[in-house]
Amino acid sequence: MQYRSKYIGYAALLLGVLSLFAASCKKDGYALPKPSDKLQNEAIKRTLGPNIVGQPIEFAYAMAILPSKGKLVSCTAEASIAGAAGTYMDNRSYYTDVTGTDVGVTVGSPSVTSGATTTVTYTADTSAATLRYFYVIPEEARGKSVTIKFTAKSSNGETISTTMGPYTITRMDMRLNMKLSNKNMMYISIGDSTVYDSAGAAAHAGNIDLVYLYRNLTTSAFNHALVAPAADTTYLPGVLLPPGVNRTAKLLKVFNLQDHNLAPTEQYGGTFIDDVDFQKLDLTGDPNYAINLKQGAGVWVETADGKYRAYIYFNAVATAGTATVSMKRYTLTNGK
């Protein structure tokens, strides 16, 4: 009797454990989600990095309604600050083919921009589409915030909206692919964002911050250099400065800081220089020259009057004494 009781106890325990396992493995029932019968929308920002004046911010705006309820009529993007020339909405809806290529299908008339509003009117009989909106940042938005309100309308009279942002527009600006050449286009004005030759430098003497030169010396690695006009003449060998070109600057040499805006094709250019980098930059005690610069090198600069900070990136150099540089420039206000 005692053995039978123990046997029953063990059996009950085993049954309990098995039941527990069975219960834990049981899948919850799944039901297909029921689609909303209302007009729906969703937006994403496709552009990464800082929002720079003159550059576009790209959005993808998706809208859809059940075919039985209606079709799409129009799509509107309204910016809080009107976009600059070039702002538009693509009238094609994209899908990705098997090769990974985005293929556009025209679904509406070309966009019409009036003030801050850009509209595409649908011409295709469609109930779902994703349109891309390119907002070119205007000068008026510098240092401010921008929001974009997307609105879709359907044939059954429904309207739906979503607002993206606010997005802070940087104070810095950008100049790409400036050509420098030894003994010719060699005078850089950060304030003017321009490169001058000797005559131009003489005409804008007070604005010249840097001199580009290339020297292939056998005794030292001079090579490509950016030197402030006021630097010791040992760093300006053979340079006869135009009259009045005498400003100094502070320079800090770096390497492999490949800003994605300045060097979009660089393999490791996943870094973005933003306003905050210029705000935190401290060039106290730095020299007024940077020599032996190579492709991939960069130079942080602060002008003598403390008005500008800049980052100049060397996209390409050649031993013929030429270089292609790109620059991000930040205008300081009250030292910040």
Binding site: T219, S220, A221, F222, A225, Y235, L252, K253, G285, D286, P287, Y289, A290, I291, N292
Partner: peptide, 9 residues
């Protein structure tokens, strides 16, 4: 050190 090195940094 190379000519032109920033000795302060």
């Amino acid at each position: 050190v190379l000519f032109g090195s920033d000795l302060k940094h």
